[in-house]
Design a protein around this nucleic acid. Structure first.
Lengths: 226, 226
DNA sequence: ACAAAAGTGTTGTCAATACACCCATGT
DNA sequence: ACATGGGTGTATTGACAACACTTTTGT
């Protein structure tokens, strides 16, 4: 008996920070009214991580570096009563710089994730809405115990930039001195560049840092509320 | 153009605690020399969680309650140069009681996970070995910030039982008084039954607890070493 | 030009808390 | 022998004050 043949797609949840808001990239097919996550079908002979990276450049038009990890796999007739198959979702965290790269094909737009989850307006198909929610929750959780917040920043960033990532993602205000102490006392989180920002709009120039080598934060940077 | 047809299987990493060691369930097909993870093919019309739960009872013979969650999806020609397809791995955490249930079909055995990862002997196919390693790592990590350690225990358990789960999974010794304080001060982790164990082999009878309603631990129970 | 004010980043202090380690007691 | 309760010193954290550096504003 041969195994059942299933259609497998890879879908991407691309998150970035735009003007202090966590945003997700949506693609709109020409003529259609509904927005979808970028993605496409894959065959069984390609590594999934490779396929996802390819979708990132082809479908979303992102070229530079960033974080990409598998999120979750959704199966069954989730996209509607007729359409079945398996969807392997990936989560990408990008700085705004990369996010501005134009898409290779079709229209794209960035939507604040709060809009999608709170509003009654249906911008996204229900299954894609759930995938986005899962991706956002994963990102929020991973900020606690990994240095992935730096993936939202440029290659060189200030501690205030990094702090604003946490504040936007968690929706809380963090004490700058305490945040600074915590980050600098966590080995491998950031490494100082030895330079400072050219002043942007007043205030003391901040020191510049780049991403460290750590893959996990010990101890973690816990959010107070659940 | 129609999407490529792919074979999709659901594979299970069943973990339990047997005599102080973290063990994984392997199945051996009759006649074959190699052990594999329990699993089977799925079609595109069934919810993956449902399919995994069915595999749990059919393939592994587990009937009672326990924890089951999706682990990760592996794609490409990972099982060998010829065999391709997508494998959706699930992670199950079970008490030893359920683990003793005989499999419905074929031979099964429990192997300590340390044996599989450290020994040079090849008990498992390389891809399945990686899936087990990922599952063990997920379990170890989740013990920190979720009450899932209780999933390894019976419905009623002592704090020493719970502590031994952490000690076996992490390979460290924990201070009983500190562990007790930490668990009891975490709301929703365990709820006291008001009874005590009948003394087993000397020593003061311990109080019995059952699983609480919490889904996450705040603050987490961190392991010291990385 | 100069001084004052406001904005931003950095350094320092202190109390509350959490934790590791150890001792004592009950069964 | 083991579970439980308590105590103490150290490390981490949260709240807040003080300082440093820059731009903007007012006279």
């Amino acid at each position: 008996m041969s195994p059942p043949a299933v259609a497998v797609s890879v879908d991407l949840v691309l998150l970035t920070l735009r003007s202090g808001q966590l945003c997700v990239l949506l693609t709109g097919r020409a003529g259609a009214d509904v927005w979808t996550l970028p993605g496409g079908f894959v065959d069984g002979d390609t590594d999934l991580d490779t396929a996802a990276a390819r979708q990132l450049t082809d479908q979303a038009g992102v070229t530079g570096t960033g974080h990409l990890e598998q999120l979750r796999t959704y199966g069954g007739p989730h996209r509607g009563p007729r359409i079945s198959g398996v969807s392997v979702a990936y989560l990408a965290l990008l700085p705004d710089l990369l996010a501005t790269v134009s898409a290779a094909a079709g229209r794209v737009c960035w939507r604040p994730v709060d809009e999608l989850t709170t509003t009654a307006e249906r911008v996204l198909a229900p299954d894609h809405q759930r995938i986005v929610a899962d991706g956002v929750e994963r990102a929020r959780a991973k900020l606690e115990y990994t240095p992935l917040a730096a993936a939202f920043c440029e290659d060189e960033f200030t501690l205030a930039d990094l702090r604003r990532v946490y504040e936007a993602a968690w929706g809380v205000a963090l004490d700058p001195p305490n945040f600074r102490r915590k980050v600098l006392s966590t080995p491998g989180f950031v490494v100082p560049c030895g330079r400072r920002t050219s002043p942007r709009g007043g205030g003391r120039p901040a020191e510049l840092y780049s991403r460290g080598a750590a893959t996990a934060l010990h101890p973690p940077l816990l959010r107070r509320s659940v």
